[in-house]
Design a protein around this nucleic acid. Sequence first.
DNA 1: GGCCGTCTGATTGTCAGACAATCTGACTAT
DNA 2: ATAGTCAGATTGTCTGACAATCAGACGGCC
Lengths: 225, 225
Amino acid sequence: MSPETPFTSLSLEHSSTVDRVVEELRRALFDGEVEAGTPLREHALGEAMGVSRSTIREALGVLVAEGLATREPNRGVHVTALDPDSVHDVCAARAVLEAAGVRRWPEASQAARDDVRRALEDFTAAAHDGASPAELTAAHLGVHKAFVGLNESSRLAAMAEAVTSEVRLGLAKVDRIRRNAAEQVVSHRALLTLLESGDVDAAERELEDHLRNAETSMLTALHLR
Amino acid sequence: MSPETPFTSLSLEHSSTVDRVVEELRRALFDGEVEAGTPLREHALGEAMGVSRSTIREALGVLVAEGLATREPNRGVHVTALDPDSVHDVCAARAVLEAAGVRRWPEASQAARDDVRRALEDFTAAAHDGASPAELTAAHLGVHKAFVGLNESSRLAAMAEAVTSEVRLGLAKVDRIRRNAAEQVVSHRALLTLLESGDVDAAERELEDHLRNAETSMLTALHLR
DNA sequence: GGCCGTCTGATTGTCAGACAATCTGACTAT
DNA sequence: ATAGTCAGATTGTCTGACAATCAGACGGCC
């Protein structure tokens, strides 16, 4: 091995065409530029983005694997529409992943705990000085991501990422985040305080309460769309 | 809607070529017909299975998404090799998913609980009258799958399926399952007894103990390969 | 011997174009 | 109203092509 690895600061992004197509489509979905249920035609997309059908097809496969889109054999791919059952399912999954992380707080590494603290600071800051809805959402999701991170399993983190991206779909045009951002910050801060004080059980209850609220408000938001 | 839905017993499998290629490749991986790390060449596979490169390519994408294979840009896809870190990661993930299910036993639906009971019966039966290693593994995994099922979230179930399949990769040629099948049955039965008696905490400890053992024996099995 | 450039073959990433199978919707005949 | 037929759209799959990238070999040079 080399006595010291130089150039550790250097990195180069290796992006394939498919990757860029996927990112662009994801962005469009998250920004709510396409309604839920909209069919994603291979030919049309290829023409629009100046890319061959094979490439689009591969990108759509990725989206489908992520749950952002749904494929019906011989009928094509369309943007996933969240029905109440899926919302519940997703929330249940999030609850499991995050609660497990929270419960693991005492055994978690220093780094993982610091991630939670930092994420909360970011969220607080974003909510305080008016950040854009997108930034606010990102910061909020960052906190929850940090909770999952306490599990210190990259696979669990990936799973959480996947289910989270699904809810982002539904939240695209719902800016309820902004309204009660302050309230959310309070809830999360309380949770962290409980953790720091060592009362893991109370923290877990706080989290589950928070997520239950999130589910109901998400449901009403979707129903009233 | 129709007054009564007839033909509910009828169903027809809709398998695309890609699906069949994926299944065949999965089977080959699980049966240990290909070493970990073996490159999966698009051209060679296409020729071997009599399908076009596009189709193979799509199938490989699925395998990669499942974690059974790994893609290195411009260098191709190869069978995923489990290093100790990944094993730990996978086991941690399983522990979270199954422990959450077990802890939810009291609130779980009757159906989900019955699934656990039935899976355990199947496993016991398989271990008793000599079943093939493959059947035994399937039955054993069935029990763990049932634990995850207690969460009653299809997304969590899917995640568990994914990480479990990764484990199966490593277990392909390790038939340690057979050796201590009896022991495993005892452990699982004890767990269920604790659940039935309402002692969820003890059941959770039993499960975590079981999974810790599984991890270490899996590690030694892999290391001695 | 070790380092550097070049060449060559293999493989992937992407493309264009084709075709059969399947779905959708309309139109028609009964 | 139901069933048959037809045209158009779309997907699933195939073929063949090409540039970009990679791995290893080969030879020159210090």
